[in-house]
Amino acid sequence: MAGGTQTTTDYIQHHLQNWVYGRHPDGTWGFAHSSQEAAEMGFWAIHVDSMAWSIGLGLVFCWLFRKAASKATAGVPGGFQNAIEYIVEFVGGTVKDSFHGHSKLVGPLALTVFVWVFLMNLMDLIPVDLIPYAAQKFGQYALGMDPHHVYFKIVPTTDVNIPAGMALGVFALMIFYGFKVKGPGYVKDFILHPFNHWAFIPVNLFMEVVGLLAKPFSLALRLFGNMFAGEMIFILIATMYSAGLILGIFGGFLQLGWAIFHILIITLQAFIFMVLTIVYLSMSHEDH
């Protein structure tokens, strides 16, 4: 890392690097001190910050909703209970009108996906340098690490592994419920679907499998792409603060404007991830 002045590319690359724990090429396990080291770890590496933030926010979601549920009163509900009720009713309504089967899993799953993805995306609104800088100071003074090697990304959904993991989870549920509801007949959907004749099986299979794989792929990359682009723009705006007073103030307004617009993107991406999860599960529940 450049010692004295930090060039903008170093700044950007520093902010895009996760806190990775994994197996070094020489077999020892440890934290990666630079992006090259993290890249060399290859498969045997785990993004500790993304995992910590996503699991932590999942727990926040469970705790929040459990607190609301345990203190639910039939009398005059407080503001907190109103908010939770609104979310549950909103998600319930969406599930009712786009899920055409009966399953005990889809309702809670939709609520979890919606609120969890929303909470993870919400971290994007926190100013880019706030928590990573605090982590840098904590790493430097408490743990005596070199500040330039303290990497800390607080938005889990800007790490491609988290949306990909969730999309794979939805994909597994799709296949599981497809077989559970339709039994072995589920395979017929792929072999005989567009052209109902045995001679067309290879053509059908090719088209249906491509369609099937496109679902989790687009589901994951849509969430990742939106959040990564949003984070990248926040980082680029943050680099304006080091370019003199006028540009700094202009950067401040830009960040405010982009953050307000980003509130829409955050909720919209969480909503779309939920709706598509419901639609995909409802497609695998349909029984002709």
Partner: peptide
């Protein structure tokens, strides 16, 4: 409309991701 706007957004954003 918001749902479809999100779906339309998917392809260019994947394009942005791959070009980055």
């Amino acid at each position: 409309m918001f749902l479809l706007a999100g779906l339309i957004d998917a392809i260019p954003i994947i394009g942005v991701g791959i070009s980055m």
